[in-house]
Design a binder for these strands. Structure first.
Lengths: 234, 234
DNA sequence: CCGCTCATGTGAAAAGGGTTTACATCAGGG
DNA sequence: CCCTGATGTAAACCCTTTTCACATGAGCGG
C-alpha cells in the first residue's frame, strides 16, 4: 500500500522547446513525435519520483509515463533503470560538491567557522535534495557503476578532505592528525546524522534538538578532541 | 520452473508437527496442504532474500516461493510486504539490543573499555546481520509502523544511552555532557561508519583502515573532546 | 529544394512477476 | 460426527521490462 499510484500525469511536461505550436496528432498536449529533450525529462522524472516514493518505488516505465512517452522510449537513452539511477547519482554528487565547496568558500574567513558552514551545508543538501541524496547513498548504486560516478564522488569527498587539511594545518606537526582520517570521521558523523535524523519525515525519532545543532555540537566535541581551538580563540 | 526453488526442502522445515509421515498429494516432498509454520518460514525467507539482494530486491511473492507455498499464502500472516518488513525490523532491534547489551556487559571491567567493545559490536552486527540491519535502517520502515517496533528500537538505543551515562558519570559535574546528546553523536558516528564503509561490499570506497579501527579512532577523539580519559588512565 | 540517413519515438507483444478473489483443505471443538 | 475458522491454492488481473519492426522528422549534402 504505502505509496499509492500517484497519478501525476497532466502535471509536469515542462519540456521547454516546442513553443512552435505544431500540435502533432501524437499526444495529448504539447509536442510532436519527438520529445526533444527526453533524457533531461527522464532525469527530472526520476528525481520527482524518487522524492515522492523513495529510491525503490520508481520504475523505468513510470518515468516514461511521467515524461509523456511510450515505455520503450527511455531505452534509447539509458540501458536500464540502474544506468538512469547512476546518472542521477552522478549529477547529485556534482551538485553536492558545488554546495559543499560554496559553503567551505576556501576556509574564509577562518577554517573553523567555515567547517561549521560545511556541516550545515551537508545537512541542508540531504534535506533539500532528498532524491539526489537517496540516489547517491541509499539506492544501492555502486560507486564503480561508472568512472564518472566515482570521479564525481571523489571530488565531493575532496572538498571535505581539503577542509580537514586546512584545519589540521593549524595544529603543531607533533599532534597533527591525518586529514584523511578526519575527513572519514566527519563524513561518517554527518551521514549518520542525516540518515538517522536528517529528514523531518515525521517518521524518524523525535530529537531534543535540530539535526544541525546535533551535528554542530558533535563537530565541536570532535575537533576539541583533536586540539582544534573553538571558533573564537587566539 | 522456479516453483520448486526450495533448496531447503528435505532439511530445514523445522516446523515440528508433520512428522506423521502423511505425505499429502499436494507438493513435491515434505508437507501436506498446510505448511504448519509459515510465518516463521516467511521471516527466514525475508532475511535470506534481503541479505542476498538488498531490502528493495525482495518481494512478497518471492518469499512465498522460497517457503514453498503459493504467492497468496503470505497474505494470511501479514497484511502486506511492509508489515513483514516491519516485523523483521522489530526482531532485528531485539537481536541488536541483545548484542549491544552483551558487549557492554554493564560497563565491566570499566566503562571506557566496554564502550570500545560496544562500538565493535555495533559494526559486527551490521556486518554479520546485514538483513536485519537493512530492515532496521535502510528499508524505509517507519519507526511508528507499530508500537512494538518503536519500543524495540528504543530499548536498543537505551543500551547505548546507558553506556554514555556511565561514561559521563566519571566526569566532574561541571563539565558533564548530556548523556542523550553523547548517545546521539555516537549512534550517528557508528551508523555513518557502518553505512558508508561497513560492509566489505567490494562496492564501497576502499579505506586505509578497517571500519573497526576507524570507529575506534573516532570514539577516541570524541571522548577525548569531552574529557573522558583514554583506556589506561588514573 | 530534394531526398538520404540516422537518431529518436511508437506500437505491439512476449515474458515475467505481484496482488487479489473465490474456492479448497484441514484441524479442532461441540 | 459435522461445523467452523484458519490456512493454503488456483486463476484472474494488472503492471513492468524488454525487444522488434516500423514511423517520424531533423540535419545534411547535393
Amino acid at each position: 500500500m504505502s505509496w499509492s499510484r500517484s497519478g501525476r500525469d497532466g502535471g509536469g511536461r515542462d519540456g521547454g522547446r516546442d513553443a512552435s505550436g505544431r500540435d502533432a496528432p501524437g499526444r495529448d498536449s504539447g509536442r510532436g513525435y519527438h520529445h526533444g529533450n527526453l533524457k533531461e525529462a527522464l532525469i527530472r522524472a526520476a528525481l520527482e519520483l524518487i522524492a515522492q516514493k523513495g529510491p525503490a518505488g520508481f520504475t523505468f516505465a513510470e518515468a516514461a509515463r511521467w515524461a509523456g512517452v511510450s515505455p520503450a522510449a527511455p531505452y534509447r537513452h539509458f540501458r536500464d533503470r540502474d544506468e538512469l539511477m547512476a546518472d542521477v547519482a552522478r549529477r547529485g554528487f556534482e551538485a553536492f560538491e558545488a554546495a559543499l565547496a560554496r559553503a567551505w568558500d576556501n576556509g574564509r574567513p577562518e577554517p573553523r567557522t567555515a567547517m561549521d558552514r560545511l556541516g550545515k551545508a551537508y545537512l541542508a543538501f540531504a534535506r533539500d535534495e532528498p532524491a539526489y541524496y537517496a540516489a547517491m547513498f541509499e539506492a544501492g548504486v555502486r560507486p564503480d557503476a561508472s568512472p564518472e560516478l566515482r570521479a564525481a564522488g571523489d571530488r565531493a569527498f575532496a572538498v571535505l578532505r581539503g577542509a580537514c587539511e586546512a584545519l589540521a594545518a593549524g595544529l603543531p606537526a607533533a599532534v597533527r592528525p591525518p586529514a584523511l582520517m578526519m575527513a572519514l570521521h566527519l563524513w561518517s558523523l554527518a551521514h549518520g546524522v542525516a540518515a538517522l535524523f536528517g529528514r523531518g519525515d515525521a517518521a524518524r525519532r523525535p530529537l531534543p534538538m535540530t539535526p544541525e545543532e546535533l551535528l554542530e555540537a558533535g563537530l565541536l566535541v570532535y575537533l576539541q578532541g583533536l586540539g582544534v581551538p573553538p571558533s573564537g580563540a587566539a
